[in-house]
Nucleic acid binder design. Structure first.
Length: 268
DNA sequence: AGCTCATGGCGAG
DNA sequence: TCGCCCTGAGCTG
């Protein structure tokens, strides 16, 4: 269930659980056996995220994890139980363990290889070193839709389908608008909003985008219940009434992902 | 038990 | 643009 905010949380969580000491690294499933052997017993010194990529630093070796659509980390208190199911990676020390299942990527990188991953990513709203002008220079020259651009990790790192849908709704922008038709003022507002929304998401571990005046309490409506997040305006709310204008939320496949928007609040 | 779908991304064509 | 990879949850029957 990973957009960028989750990866930044995971970096902090790994540092809390394993930082500064030797970690037992294993691959109960076997698919990461060679990589695990390289890292086993070494000290976890740093952990960081860039977009949806997680990097754990063991000296000059970096463990690089990308969860993809299905990957998940599970943390627990030692002693770790016998692995259940397909555990690609297990980290363990005297106090904690973490199991990784189903990642798209789990590999050991050199510092140069790690730099190459950073180099192909756009700015991440959750990183202090992010330069939003890099994203703007691509968006403002592109004929692609703003919806496609926001999901393109080379343009912007860490934004996924939920933040994309929600930030466009909050700014009243049609997902079908071309990037080059966005104004600088609109982009600045979108970036600032992503920084704020994703920081909050990283802090609380879920995606809440609904403003106070539209919360269930404020509108006397039942809270949204599902498995992936908090209160949102349009994401996965197809055919339900818009929380602001009551128009039916629309959905449509767009570049292999489902797009959600309010045709009234996001006309242009 | 089997099907469908999912907050992602890659490579082939 | 499509097929494919990875796994689990929530339907249907």
């Amino acid at each position: 269930m990973p957009e960028g905010h989750i990866l930044h949380r995971l970096a902090a969580e790994h540092l809390r659980a394993f930082g500064g000491e030797a970690v037992a690294v294993a691959s109960p499933q076997g698919r990461f056996a060679a990589g695990a052997a390289l890292l086993d017993g070494r000290v976890l010194e740093t952990a960081e995220a860039d977009g949806k990529h997680l990097f754990l630093g063991f000296g000059d070796s970096w463990l690089h994890v990308h969860l993809g659509l299905y990957g998940v980390f599970g943390f627990g208190v030692a002693p770790a139980p016998a692995p259940v199911g397909l555990v690609r990676l297990r980290l363990e020390n005297s106090a904690h363990f973490a199991d990784l299942r189903g990642p798209t990527t789990c590999e050991v990188l050199t510092p140069g290889e790690k730099d190459a991953v950073h180099a192909r990513l756009g700015p991440d709203p959750l990183r202090a070193d992010a330069d939003p002008d890099r994203a703007w220079s691509r968006i403002s020259r592109s004929r692609s839709t703003v919806a496609a651009l926001l999901m393109d990790q080379k343009v912007l790192a860490g934004v996924g389908n939920v933040y994309r849908a929600e930030v466009l709704f909050r700014h009243g922008i049609s997902p079908h608008r071309a990037g080059r038709d966005l104004t600088r003022t609109e982009w600045d507002a979108i970036w600032a909003d992503l920084v704020a929304l994703m920081r909050e998401g990283a802090a609380i571990g879920r995606i809440d985008t609904v403003r106070p005046e539209h919360t269930p309490e404020a509108m006397n409506r039942p809270p949204r219940v599902d498995d992936h997040g908090g209160e949102v305006y349009v994401y996965r709310r197809a055919a339900q009434p818009c929380l602001v204008c009551a128009t039916e939320v629309r959905t449509e496949p767009h570049a292999a992902r489902n797009l959600f928007w309010c045709p009234n609040c996001q006309q242009h």
